[in-house]
């Protein structure tokens, strides 16, 4: 964190802390919830950024992990409210436990998907991650017990010990703490020897191999951690919306998470945060202005890829370390 980028990161962090509080004091409940949405989407992108930005693994299937997190929250709340059990286990509405299960389950699934997908490279990796996500997507659609295509509502938001999660600003606080924790974790990982190895696996595999480290294991570990963060975002997203549906796992969603990473700036710690702010605000305000916002989003995105390769962070803070 140095120079101009450091200042921008600081400004983003300050904005995440101050703006929603101001909105809360002004009584703008809607905008506080919008801020929660920004933070959650940013968290999902922070997860993907670890795999895509730092590890060079272009996963086109991260929506699968987002959806897994969402469905853990949804299914858990569903059984707890109906008083029924899941495969004989009683479920919970406690967020910390739900997060733990989401993250672990996503980790196990990512381990399986990664173990197969990471045998491939480049385009094959993009496509096979897409295919696995589609598989889970179709499973969620066709499996009727939890609503299938209709989705699964969460009628009462899950709880957090000692906090009132219904209060929008409190829920925002929970989300923003989760985001900061994952940003901190990412920074620590990338600052560690593991991070250096991941960097190396991305840039020069042979050098890593000569150092006696298997790139496959490094990549797989990063892929799993990345999936876990995105799953945590999914669980929070489900509680924010009070609803989970297979659309959380659709390939459009994978594309959107990827777009946020790129829009913000690939491989920049705070890039996903900048990307999420830009994306959600564009979606909300362009969507309010015109029915054809997809057209404008497409043009903006195309412009970013063609002419502003570093994304927002690249534009404001200059080139990233690696370029």
């Amino acid at each position: 964190m140095r120079g101009r980028e450091g200042w921008i990161n600081g400004a983003l962090a300050a904005a995440l802390l101050i703006v929603p509080l101001a909105l809360h004091l002004a009584g703008e409940v809607y905008y506080v919830n919008l801020a929660s949405r920004v933070v959650i989407v940013a968290l999902a992108a922070v997860g993907l950024n670890l795999a895509l930005g730092y590890g060079g693994m272009v996963s086109f299937g991260h929506a699968a992990f987002f959806g897994i997190g969402g469905y853990v929250a949804g299914i858990s709340a569903h059984h707890a409210i109906l008083g029924t059990s899941f495969l004989g286990l009683s479920t919970t509405t406690e967020m910390p436990l739900i997060w733990l299960i989401s993250v672990l389950l996503a980790g196990v699934v990512a381990l399986a998907i990664g173990a197969i997908s990471l045998r491939t490279k480049g385009v094959y990796f993009i496509m096979i991650t897409l295919a696995f996500a589609q598989m889970l997507y179709y499973f969620a659609i066709s499996f009727p017990a939890y609503g299938g295509e209709d989705g699964l509502p969460i009628y009462v938001r899950n709880t957090f010990p000692g906090l009132n999660t219904f209060d929008p600003i409190t829920f925002y606080g929970i989300c923003v703490v989760a985001l900061f924790a994952c940003l901190f974790l990412t920074a620590r990982i990338m600052g560690s020897r593991f991070g250096a190895a991941l960097d190396m696996a991305h840039l020069s595999e042979t050098r890593l191999a000569t150092a006696g480290i298997a790139p496959f294991n490094i990549r797989l570990t990063a892929f799993v951690i990345s999936a876990m963060m995105t799953a945590l975002a999914g669980a929070l997203f489900a509680d924010l919306n009070g609803f989970v549906s297979p659309s959380m796992m659709s390939w459009h969603r994978s594309g959107e998470i990827m777009v946020i990473v790129i829009l913000g700036g690939v491989g920049r710690l705070w890039g996903p945060v900048a990307g999420a702010i830009a994306f959600v605000l564009l979606e909300t305000f362009l969507g309010g202005l015109t029915e054809r916002w997809g057209l404008f989003l497409g043009l903006i995105l195309l412009g970013t890829v063609l002419f502003a390769r570093g994304g927002i962070m690249g534009l404001i803070a200059g080139k990233a370390r690696h370029d």
Partner: peptide, 27 residues
């Protein structure tokens, strides 16, 4: 869901209507 939050929380609408699909209605 996002639109309904906006209508209810920001615009204070009295009545909501319009949803076509059951899965959206349930949300």
């Amino acid at each position: 869901k996002t639109i309904s939050d906006k209508f209810v929380q920001r615009d204070n609408v009295d009545i909501l209507t319009g949803i076509i699909w059951s899965n959206l209605a349930m949300a």
